[in-house]
Design a protein around this nucleic acid. Sequence first.
DNA 1: TTGATTGCAAACGGTTTGCATGGGA
DNA 2: TCCCATGCAAACCGTTTGCAATCAA
Lengths: 128, 128
Amino acid sequence: MTPQRIAIVEYVANSLHHPTAEDICIHVNERFPMTSRATVYNTLHLLRDYGLLQEINEAGVIRFDPNIRDHHHFICTGCGSVRDIPQELVNIVFSTEATDFQADDIEVVVRGRCVVCKSLGNVFVATS
Amino acid sequence: MTPQRIAIVEYVANSLHHPTAEDICIHVNERFPMTSRATVYNTLHLLRDYGLLQEINEAGVIRFDPNIRDHHHFICTGCGSVRDIPQELVNIVFSTEATDFQADDIEVVVRGRCVVCKSLGNVFVATS
DNA sequence: TTGATTGCAAACGGTTTGCATGGGA
DNA sequence: TCCCATGCAAACCGTTTGCAATCAA
């Protein structure tokens, strides 16, 4: 456990908005300048391999989610933010009779507008 | 409508496995050598803009799906293939009372092993 | 002649890798 | 001493863009 790793873990663990690797790089560098991308990615992949966080790939960009319980995701089409939806709120009935594959995991992604973007009338804003 | 465009449309329309842009490039070049990536992407984006196909982004790679009806996807963790799941097979009950966002679209991704990988015992094969 | 389509090559952005350095056990 | 985390830079891969050549109307 090095200072850089602690900073990465703390930042991801305390974030509610599923930061991208780039977000994490920027914030860790505010506390520990000169922290390289390699270190950030290396640490995040270790955490993932140990099952301490989830990777979610949204539109080609990997985001990191400290919530490892079964849950689903809401993605705002206004501001690009990603939030968790507790498993309990989503009830899926999936008829497996007509299928020949073995289902190991079901992921639900809900897209729409968050309360802020809804009130602001944001319809689409590039996530740059 | 140029020969290249017709080849692209035919290939995507007749494919059941949701080809990537690279897959499409390779197949179109078998019929029309020298077809450039720019042409393939350009045509695919046109088709998408006209609503004639869907883009699905799986693990950072864009795949193209000629099925534009509402449906969901199964992704095989053995061979990486992607298949459609008809809307009718998936029944989602989503309680919106506890949420403050506006849900516009729900996407379900089922991961598991297809019938072939199940019988071959494939657990994970890199999709290269 | 005009506009759209094409091929090429370079740029782009996020991610991964190779390698030398340096600190801790 | 050995191992492993680190920083840097380059490579990588899929995608996008700029531009000149070409084709059809």
